[in-house]
Write a protein that binds this DNA or RNA. Structure first.
Length: 613
DNA sequence: ACCAACTGTCATACA
DNA sequence: ACTGTATGACAGTTG
């Protein structure tokens, strides 16, 4: 294993060094370079995983009968043998089954060739799966720290040449012998296998990318990618860690990859980012010259690479400013007090793109992710009608307007023009707002402008009291984090009061917006109900009219029938009864009586007898 | 100047 | 008790 890592990394590092020496933009080149390698090795890894899974299935069946010691597989729900070293391997491998199966089933055309490759691999390296499993375990163990008994990943600050976070101690089978490694390399060179791998890579590119320990940048301790990979893996949990270079490139986008339920873990790990990483430590290495450029200009890579590549613009936030635990005052000053550095180093620097789905407007669940939004991101979301977050994008954008202004130029991806308009406006209106006067409105969106005014007031208040946090942080941090943040900094009473007021106002503002939104929705619903009720009323009236018509017709028919019956009645003398003198009445038992009308008056007075017909 | 709509804020109740 | 949310009411801003 180590040999393989060293072997691959040596080649890779040579290439990298060449690129470095040639002053090539490593941000792009490296990705392509590493990407291919990663794809290939990733495919191999997956093949090994699959093969190992098959082997493990056999072992399970055999050992099930033999071993009394059983263990419940968390993934499959079935009991599997628990050897000292294989048990964690199983649990580490099984999570990948789903992806593998999907990938295999999808490529029906090359299934045979791929299976052949697998078969060849299985026959050639019957024991190597464990090594591969260790790799996978590396990923899964970190991604599911709660589930795995393995020790946590290495401290991020600990940069060792060993790319693997400390998985369980390597067993003899986990290490690849040089011979096997050579065979592996030969296998990799097989055109057929490469074709299969390329097919697999296309699938995995869209879904997942796994970090390979023997990737060059990981291998080299000088590259700070690896810790970032670890970090990301920790944060993204099951999200299938991205390649280190990707993660490094869009550190800010990582949370967006993570499902909402992973935000908590992200949040838990966030401080480590700050404490263990200097932003320049890993960005400056790879983007010594590009950091500032990327932070101020559109990215050529955006849109040309994969979807995840589009998140590159989010890199500057992390590169320039830490999360809130990193000297907030510093970031505050940089973001607001220094107009020059405001563009790249604004508060939005601490924001990263996160799925807003994880946050509900009515709750503080913006939590980590919400305040990690950059305003430009929020604007993008606002301008993206098709996004799922469109419902809440307004509120978010309102929340983060101050950062929007401050960071207008920092991540000017989509609307540099508009943001450039906003920024000078902010500076001009700030003094004006103090006097209660507002200057010309530049923003098209009145809503945004107002929120800007409001939040800029709070910003100014916070600035006046030297509150070392951003308004967005104050408002959107969860209670625990907020309290923790408060406890970390010695704030006087005025500062505390202001911070809590800002938080209260910010939350209440959102609540008011929600309330009004609901109110409007209720009005719409009520109007709709009113319309439907009107329609119902019309329908019922029409039905009533129809029923009246029918009733009238039936009465007429009954009257004619009545007369017809009367015309057929005869007395003893054969004379017909006069309808004016007699009437027909039906008793409860069904019998019909001919009742003299004259006697009706009688009936009232004296109960006369009725003559049955 | 007036007005309507929008928005932020406060006070209060409630969970 | 604290925090967040909901909502009515009020005031400021804006077109």
């Amino acid at each position: 294993m180590d040999m393989e890592v060293l072997h691959c990394s040596q080649q890779d590092m040579n290439l990298i060094d060449i690129l470095w020496n040639q002053d090539i933009d490593l941000g792009a080149r490296r990705e392509v370079f590493d990407y291919n390698h990663r794809q290939k090795e990733h495919e191999l890894q997956r093949q090994r995983e699959l093969e190992e899974e098959k082997r493990l299935d056999l072992l399970r069946e055999q050992e099930k009968a033999l071993l009394a010691q059983l263990q419940l597989d968390e993934e499959t729900g079935e009991y599997i043998p628990r050897p000292p070293s294989s048990a964690p391997l199983q649990s580490a491998v099984t999570p990948l089954e789903g992806t593998q199966n999907v990938s295999f089933t999808e490529e029906s055309g090359d299934a045979m060739s791929f299976d052949e490759c697998l078969q060849l691999l299985a026959e050639t390296f019957p024991v190597e799966e464990t090594e591969n499993a260790s790799v996978c375990q590396d990923t899964t163990a970190v991604s599911a720290p709660m589930m795995s008994p393995e020790p946590p990943a290495l401290p991020l600050a600990t940069l060792t040449p060993d790319p693997l976070p400390p998985p369980p101690p390597p067993t003899p089978t986990q290490r690849m012998s040089p011979d096997l490694e050579q065979v592996w390399m030969e296998l990799l060179s097989l055109p057929e296998l490469q074709q299969c791998l390329s097919m697999q890579m296309e699938d995995t590119l869209e879904t997942t990318t796994y970090p390979l320990p023997n990737s060059p940048e990981v291998q080299n301790p000088n590259y700070s990618f690896y810790p970032m990979t670890n970090l990301t893996e920790e944060g993204t949990n099951n999200v299938n860690a991205c390649p280190a270079e990707f993660i490094n490139t869009f550190d800010g986008s990582v949370p967006s990859i993570a499902p909402p339920d992973n935000l908590n873990q992200m949040k838990a790990k966030a401080p480590q980012i700050n404490t263990n990483f200097g932003a320049e430590s890993f960005c400056g290495v790879f983007y010594p010259n590009a950091v500032l450029e990327e932070s101020s200009g559109p990215h050529s890579l955006e849109g040309t690479e994969s979807d995840t590549m589009s998140d590159i613009p989010n890199k500057p936030p992390f590169t320039s400013v830490d999360l809130y635990s990193l000297s907030p005052e510093d970031s505050f000053d940089r973001g607001k007090q220094n107009p020059i550095t405001e563009l790249p180093d604004s508060d939005s620097g601490i924001f990263s793109n996160t799925s807003p789905n994880a946050s509900s407007p009515g709750k503080s669940v913006y939590g980590e992710g919400s305040f990690l939004y950059s305003d430009s991101d929020m604007e993008e979301m606002d301008h993206n009608p098709g996004s799922a977050e469109s419902d809440y994008s307004e509120m978010f954008s309102l929340n983060f307007q101050p950062d929007d202004l401050q960071s207008a130029g920092s991540v000017c991806v989509g609307q540099p023009q508009q943001q450039q308009e906003k920024k000078p406006k902010q500076h001009q209106t700030d003094p004006a707002e103090e006097s209660g006067h507002n200057n010309t409105p530049f923003t098209k969106d009145k809503q945004k402008k107002r929120s800007n005014v409001r939040l800029s007031r709070d910003e100014q208040r916070a600035r006046a009291l030297k509150i070392p946090f951003t308004v967005a942080m104050i408002i959107n941090l969860p209670v625990d984090d907020f309290n923790e943040l408060m406890s970390k900094h010695q704030l006087n009473e005025a500062q505390l009061a202001l911070v809590r007021d800002i938080r209260r106002r910010g939350k209440n503002k959102v609540a008011a917006q929600n309330c009004r939104k609901r109110k409007m929705e209720n009005i719409v619903v009520l109007e709709s109900d009113l319309d439907s009720l009107k329609d119902e009323k019309e329908r019922l009236l029409s039905e009533k009219s129809q029923n009246m018509t029918n009733l009238k017709e039936m009465k007429q028919q009954l009257s004619s029938l009545y007369l017809e019956v009367f015309s057929m009645l005869r007395d003893e003398k054969g004379n017909s009864y006069s309808p004016s003198d007699y009437s027909l009445q039906q008793s409860t038992n069904g019998s019909i009586f001919l009742v003299p009308r004259i006697k009706k008056t009688f009936i009232k007075r004296e109960d006369t007898h009725l003559s049955p017909v």
